[in-house]
Amino acid sequence: MAYIAQDVLRQKPASGAVFAFHGRCGDRIKLLYCDGQGFYLYCKVLERGRFTWPSVADGTTCLTSAQLAMLWEGMAGAALTGACHRLGLAKLSI
């Protein structure tokens, strides 16, 4: 995951940003975060439904902390299309 963030997304994985990845079916999400001492990988699989992703032009987008929380909880996403603050949230199909 850190390799994808660095080489594909051209971001520093140890920058303190949160990177989000999803599977092809859209029912899985992985969040990668580095706190300066090590990496954390959080994974979640929905039993029913799919995660609603915001529209993405170049493979990346940024979300507010509230939008990230909504995405993690699997909430449907009209609010995910709002203005963004730089959290470094990146979306990439894996």
Rank of each mutant, 00 (worst) to 15 (best):
R48A: 09
G49Y: 07
T52C: 14
G38M: 12
T60C: 08
G49L: 10
L31M: 14
L32V: 12
H22K: 14
K12N: 15
E47H: 14
D7H: 13
W72Q: 09
A17R: 05
L46R: 13
V8F: 05
H22Y: 15
G38K: 13
V56H: 05
Q11D: 06
D7S: 07
T64M: 06
L32H: 02
D35M: 05
Y33Q: 09
A69R: 13
E73H: 14
K44Y: 02
L89R: 00
G59K: 04
T61F: 03
Y3F: 15
C34G: 07
A66V: 10
C34F: 13
Y40G: 06
I29S: 06
F51W: 04
A90N: 07
L80N: 04
A66M: 09
C84I: 01
A79S: 14
F51H: 07
D7V: 06
R24L: 04
G23C: 10
T64C: 03
M1S: 07
E73V: 14
G49N: 12
V45M: 03
M70E: 06
Y42S: 11
T61M: 01
T52A: 15
R24G: 04
T61R: 08
W72N: 09
F51N: 01
K91P: 03
T81M: 14
D58E: 12
K30H: 10
V18P: 00
S93M: 11
R24N: 02
L32M: 07
Y3I: 13
G36N: 04
D58H: 12
V18T: 12
D58C: 01
I29R: 03
G38V: 05
P54L: 00
A5K: 02
D27R: 13
V18M: 03
L9M: 09
V45D: 01
S55F: 08
C43K: 05
P13R: 02
I4D: 09
G26T: 08
A57P: 02
P13M: 05
L63D: 04
A83M: 12
H85A: 11
S65Y: 09
T81H: 15
M70T: 01
F51T: 03
C62R: 06
G77K: 01
W72F: 12
V18G: 00
L80Y: 04
H22L: 11
T64L: 03
R24H: 05
A90W: 01
A5L: 01
A5H: 00
T60F: 00
V45I: 05
A69N: 08
E73R: 15
L80K: 04
A5T: 12
V56F: 07
S55D: 15
R10S: 11
S65E: 14
W53L: 15
T52N: 06
G74L: 02
G77R: 02
W53F: 15
L68N: 02
F39G: 07
Q37I: 10
